[in-house]
């Protein structure tokens, strides 16, 4: 294995991690502030991807599509919050799981209704096409680097938003004591809607960016959603820092595991068998990592102070 391949895979892992972070940040924010477990987060990711693909196909501009994905996902999030989610805040987690599971069924089937069963395709914008040379000689697509940069930008933006602005102060206050900030005169219902729409917009952005790498289809959000769950469980539910580090860890471990494990097993076994066992082990690797981390730290690596 060459250095170039390792570097390429490391970047792929980072790109996956950044994308998971966009999903996990919304999930963990919504859980931290409202105490809600939202399975339908993957549907908002799908909404973002479809909005981007549809608008890009209609206007020919990826960038307009990206704006549309943010707007549509945030709007879908706000509508769902107003109609359904806000009735769930005082319910137990079982009711939340079921109601949001029902939302997944409706979102998936509704999308199939609108767009049909065939996947849509989204082209990479001309500005970001092409590849750059990595040290070691390999070519790496600019678009994937752009995703990593966008993710880093969003992470920094979230840090500023939550750490430095009035809205962020309210979000942090909501995380530590919901009743108190309501009593202090903050309009908590609007705050919840805003937080939910913000999480939805992040998911939609992730969906739109990934849409240009894969096909845009119904059900695309679900594998990502489950990985995002793994991320926030590892990172500690409610912690944005945990979500960021957890996402990068999961992204890199998963990508490198798929590369290295078959080779590692290959040292001991025949190539065919090694591919099979190594491949099966690699697909389970992050779950084993999660089990190991939870066995030592049942509340994740960076448990949020409250809850």
């Amino acid at each position: 294995m060459t250095l170039a391949l390792a570097l390429e895979q490391l970047l792929n892992g980072l790109q996956l991690g950044v994308m998971l972070f966009l999903m996990a940040a919304g999930l963990t924010l919504i859980f931290g502030v409202m105490g809600l477990i939202n399975l339908a987060h993957g549907s908002l990711y799908m909404v973002g991807a479809f909005a981007c693909a549809a608008v890009a196909a209609a206007t020919g501009s990826f960038w307009l599509g990206l704006v549309a994905s943010l707007a549509c996902a945030a709007a879908a999030g706000a509508i769902v919050e107003l109609l359904v989610i806000r009735r769930l805040y005082d319910r137990d987690h079982l009711d939340q799981v079921l109601a949001t599971f029902a939302l997944i069924l409706m979102f998936s089937e509704g999308t199939r209704w609108l767009f049909g069963s065939f996947p849509l395709y989204l082209d990479i914008p001309p500005l970001l096409q092409g590849a750059v040379a990595l040290p070691g000689g390999a070519q790496y697509p600019v678009y994937r680097l752009a995703i990593i940069a966008a993710g880093a930008l969003v992470a920094f933006g979230l840090y500023l938003l939550i750490g430095k602005t009035r809205l962020g102060m309210r979000i942090r206050a909501g995380e530590s004591d919901r009743e108190m900030i309501g009593a202090l005169g903050v309009d908590i219902r609007t705050l919840y809607t805003v937080v939910f729409a913000l999480g939805a917009a992040l998911a939609g952005l992730a969906g739109a960016m990934v849409g240009a790498l894969q096909s845009v289809q119904v059900g695309m959000g679900e594998p990502v959603l489950i990985l995002a769950f793994v991320v926030i469980v590892i990172g500690g539910i409610g912690s944005i820092k945990g979500a960021l580090l957890g996402a990068l860890l999961v992204g890199v471990v998963d990508t490198l595991g798929r590369l290295l494990l078959p080779k590692l097993v290959g040292v001991f076994l025949q190539p065919a068998q090694a591919g099979m066992i190594g491949g099966a082990a690699a697909s389970m690797l992050i779950y084993m990592m999660m089990a190991l981390i939870l066995a030592m730290k049942p509340r994740g690596l960076f448990p949020a102070a409250h809850a």
Binding site: F31, I37, H93, V97, I226, F229, V230, I232, V233, I237, M276, G279, A280, A282, S283, M284, Y287, M288, M290, A291, L294, A295, P298, R299, G300
Partner: peptide, 27 residues
């Protein structure tokens, strides 16, 4: 060892682990 939301998500993740194992094990 966990409870609440952690329990929900970790059982989900273990089930996914079994699921991916079944998919990637060709025998």
């Amino acid at each position: 060892r966990t409870s609440g939301v952690y329990f929900i998500m970790i059982t989900l993740a273990f089930a996914q682990m079994v699921y991916y194992f079944a998919i990637s094990w060709p025998a």
